[in-house]
């Protein structure tokens, strides 16, 4: 009977193994092929609880309509063009804002990251600007742009820019001196080194930043619509709320959650593709 636990211990991969393959094998060994099934069961249980709670009177059905009612409302809404316009507006604010922040962060980060003196000059300013909550800019956005898309963009860009910019700075600082010297010894000029050494070194950092920024950008996109009233899912929620359509409010919240899941899945897929060579993705293939 001694063998049982011993085998179990060996079965679990050594905990020292860093991210990537080790973690995956360990998880696979523990959860096995049941993993997706368990995930589905978890959602089903949550929906059942949501359905039961208002029906059994644990919470007021006026404040939390049962899941079936909310999902039915969502399906109803999804059949209207207005819903998809709102989704489109939200995604436009998200994508455009994220793209602007990404381009600015990469450009500035690569430039300033390689100029230590300029970086030292700007560091304190960045440390001051970075913690300012984007929502604190709402009055400013309204003053400048009203309920225009640009209001949303201002908030989205401001929030996601710092996340990306800081990551690029870390990435640039992480360039391996041996890789750098190799590139120099083979005659790679400044621009060629940025392209072939600095940029790939920065990518893992940048992808982490992008994952965070993509989520934050969606939050801010919805927030701006909700508070300022620029078109999109956020404004739909506000309208539903003021007209007392509780089920609609929930349905739209579920829709924003769905967008969040999609965005996260998308960024993770991109990450796996772009960083196929990196230790965090390549997994067991590593020597």
């Amino acid at each position: 009977m001694r063998r049982g636990p011993a085998v179990l211990t060996t079965g679990a991969a050594p905990p020292a193994v860093p991210a990537g393959g080790g973690a995956r094998t360990r998880r696979a060994a523990r959860a096995g092929p049941d993993r997706p099934l368990l995930g589905a069961l978890g959602i089903a249980a949550l929906l059942a609880l949501w359905e039961a709670a208002p029906r059994l009177g644990a919470v007021s059905a006026r404040h939390l309509p049962p899941a079936s009612e909310v999902l039915a409302t969502l399906a109803e809404r999804a059949a209207t063009a207005a819903f998809w316009t709102a989704v489109g507006d939200t995604l436009t604010g998200w994508a455009l804002g994220l793209a602007i922040a990404f381009a600015a962060a990469v450009l500035l980060g690569l430039t300033l990251g390689s100029l230590p003196r300029v970086r030292a000059f700007t560091d304190s300013t960045v440390d001051f600007l970075r913690p300012i909550p984007s929502v604190a800019l709402i009055p400013l956005a309204v003053l400048m742009y009203g309920t225009d898309l640009r209001s949303t963009l201002l908030l989205v860009v401001y929030a996601s820019f710092w996340l990306l910019y800081i990551q690029v700075l870390y990435g640039v600082a992480d360039v391996d001196p041996v890789a750098e010297q190799t590139a120099r010894s083979y005659g790679l000029g400044r621009l060629a080194r940025v392209r072939h050494v600095v940029w790939p070194t920065t990518l893992p950092y940048l992808m982490t930043g992008l994952r965070l920024a993509a989520a934050v950008a969606l939050i801010l996109s919805v927030t701006a619509q909700l508070v300022i009233g620029s078109p999109g899912l956020g404004r739909e929620i506000a309208v539903a709320q003021s007209s007392g359509a509780v089920a609609s409010v929930y349905a739209l919240i579920v829709a924003t959650g769905g967008l969040g899941v999609l965005v996260n899945t998308g960024v993770r897929a991109l990450e796996r593709r772009v960083l196929h060579w990196h230790a965090s993705v390549r997994g067991e293939a590593a020597a």
Binding site: V178, A179, Q181, T182, S185, G187, L188
Partner: peptide, 29 residues
């Protein structure tokens, strides 16, 4: 002049295939 470093793991670029690693300096040329 070409240099071969002790730290091959850091001198080769992990984001490039073997072929691309060998070819990069030639592209620069």
């Amino acid at each position: 002049m070409a240099v071969v470093f002790q730290e091959y793991g850091r001198s080769l670029f992990p984001w490039m295939s073997v072929r691309a690693n060998v070819e990069l300096p030639l592209k620069q040329k």
